[in-house]
Nucleic acid binder design. Structure first.
Lengths: 116, 116
DNA sequence: GGCAATACCTTGACAGGCGAGGTACTTCAC
DNA sequence: GTGAAGTACCTCGCCTGTCAAGGTATTGCC
């Protein structure tokens, strides 16, 4: 995994919620989806993932129910709530702003030349 | 200040180094530059800033010297080292990748519709 | 039976951010 | 001359999110 987690820190919730907006899902699957989507350049560590689930459920952004795993262990499915959807939209918005800010601050004119 | 710090966490070093590539500078000024550049939407808290200076100096990315403040307290200036420049370029590169990854993961097709 | 894959969970340590507090110097108004 | 406001630096201790390491349970296959 090549990307420092600290760079993505703070976006974990948004990433999870984005998955759940598409459809109800469970930890193991979300994790794999993320790995595939990024060509194994990034993954949510299990501990991080499950910590995030607790956090999101506690704040009413998601709810969970047990489903059965076809050919595997039982799964705990999560669905996104109304509050979760709102939160998601806010997080996306914050990301847009943060993105803009970082892009403005991280590039130095002098560095641009050096970079070429 | 509207942007959650966690979203920018991990970029602090890159932001500081970007300033120092342009020219030698000192804490107070860097802080103000950042505030202005972002229309007060973001600032590095002092504690964060000085912690970062220690960290960067310890790892050989920057070096410091005392200058005098014209009409104010004395200033500790920092300059970026060769290692600092290298580190900076790496961080920029990592940021590009992280940016790409977050953009890929944070948007859900379903959400795109909702967002419109 | 044993292994791999699926699937979930907890504990404890660590690092970075930052609120709160402090120091010291200069300038300017009263 | 004194008090406030601006410049400038610094430290302590808490909080939060990440994650290595460890664990559990189920199924399918050889």
């Amino acid at each position: 995994m090549s990307i420092a987690a600290d760079l993505i820190r703070g976006h974990t919730d948004a990433i999870i919620l984005a998955q759940l907006i598409a459809e109800d899902s469970y930890g193991y699957k979300i994790n794999n989806t993320i790995k595939e989507a990024t060509d194994n350049r990034y993954e949510l560590k299990e501990a991080t993932l499950y910590t995030a689930f607790r956090r999101l459920e506690q704040s009413g952004c998601i709810s969970s129910y047990w489903g059965d795993g076809e050919g595997g262990a039982r799964r705990r499915y999560y669905s996104i709530t109304k509050r979760g959807t709102e939160t998601y939209l806010n997080l996306v918005n914050e990301w847009k702003q943060a993105n803009e800010i970082i892009n403005k601050l991280i590039y130095s004119e002098r560095a641009e030349e050096t970079d070429k």
